[in-house]
Computed example of a mutant assay.
Amino acid sequence: MTIPAIKHVQAVAFDLDGTLCDSVPDLAAAANATRQHMGLPPLPEHTVANYVGDGIASLVHRVLTDSRNGQAEPGRWEQAFAFFIRYYREHLSVFTRPYPETEAGLALLRSLGIPLAVVTNKNEVLATELLQQLHLADYFSLILGGDSLPEKKPSPLPLLHAAEVLGTAPADMLMVGDSANDILAAKAAGCLSVGVTFGYGDMTQLSQNPATQPDWLVGSLPEIYENLQPQKTQHE
């Protein structure tokens, strides 16, 4: 953790999926919509949850075959994959919910007068709509998606752009996320990186590699506020 720099933080950027919200339930819904489209009966949500973790391409193979190691016929897989992507992008916020302490953490940071941004690789329009439906959009001064700029994370460009828009130096901005892309982007931009331990990424594994080791780990968003607070004097 880079404690001496934390008191200079003037802005905070957040990843979206796996950091602000849990979108796995929408993946399960999209999986069963895909199975229905392909003439198959639905799967229990816990079954689909066990198939998640290796990307949508693998998930579609598993959903079609109802087997973790299954491989669907290529033409059938392509049809299902196209449907899955379309359905999922159109139903991003049906079941997706913020993590329990997301709103509390954002409200605490805003109480310090620190501008907040979302920097996600999700399409900007969909990210904005998702945040609006989760009643989180008003916390953010800026929302950048994967299609907002010529490059997306792990490129530093979105973070450099966010820092410029928010009127701060990259070195004075935190990037909070759950994946290697978030940490790599932060390091490349010269931002402090904060890894959340509750997201989809394996922070224990990422922390073992200097290239993806965050400067700071948190188990909840309010911990960021707590560490940004100035030290209390004895008479306070």
Rank of each mutant, 00 (worst) to 15 (best):
M1T: 12
T2K: 02
T2G: 04
V12K: 04
V12R: 03
F14T: 00
G18W: 02
L20V: 15
L20A: 11
C21G: 06
S23D: 13
V24K: 14
P25K: 02
P25V: 10
P25A: 08
L27S: 10
A28G: 08
A28N: 07
A29D: 13
A31T: 08
A33E: 04
T34V: 05
Q36C: 08
Q36S: 13
H37G: 01
G39Q: 07
L40Q: 08
P42Q: 04
L43W: 04
L43H: 08
P44S: 04
H46R: 15
H46L: 15
T47W: 01
A49G: 11
A49E: 15
V52Y: 08
G55P: 05
G55S: 03
S58W: 00
L59I: 06
V60C: 04
H61R: 01
T65N: 08
D66I: 02
S67M: 06
S67C: 14
S67L: 13
G70L: 06
E73D: 14
R76S: 06
E78N: 09
Q79A: 14
I85W: 01
Y88D: 12
E90D: 12
V94I: 11
R97L: 12
R97Q: 15
Y99N: 14
P100R: 10
E101H: 15
T102A: 14
A104H: 15
A104L: 11
G105K: 08
G113H: 04
G113I: 09
I114P: 01
L116Y: 07
V118Y: 08
V119H: 03
N121W: 03
E124H: 11
V125F: 11
L126I: 11
L131M: 10
Q132R: 14
L134Q: 02
L134A: 08
Y139S: 13
S141C: 15
L144T: 15
G145C: 11
D147K: 07
L149E: 08
L149R: 02
P150K: 02
E151V: 01
P156K: 01
P158M: 02
A163N: 00
V165P: 06
A169E: 12
P170S: 10
P170N: 09
D172I: 03
D172T: 05
L174Q: 03
M175G: 00
M175L: 07
V176F: 01
A180I: 00
N181W: 00
I183Y: 00
G190A: 03
C191R: 00
C191P: 05
V194K: 00
Y200E: 05
Q208V: 03
A211N: 07
Q213S: 12
Q213M: 11
P214V: 01
W216D: 02
L217D: 10
G219N: 15
I224M: 00
N227D: 07
Q229T: 15
Q231W: 14
K232C: 13
K232L: 14
Q234M: 15
H235N: 15
E236W: 15
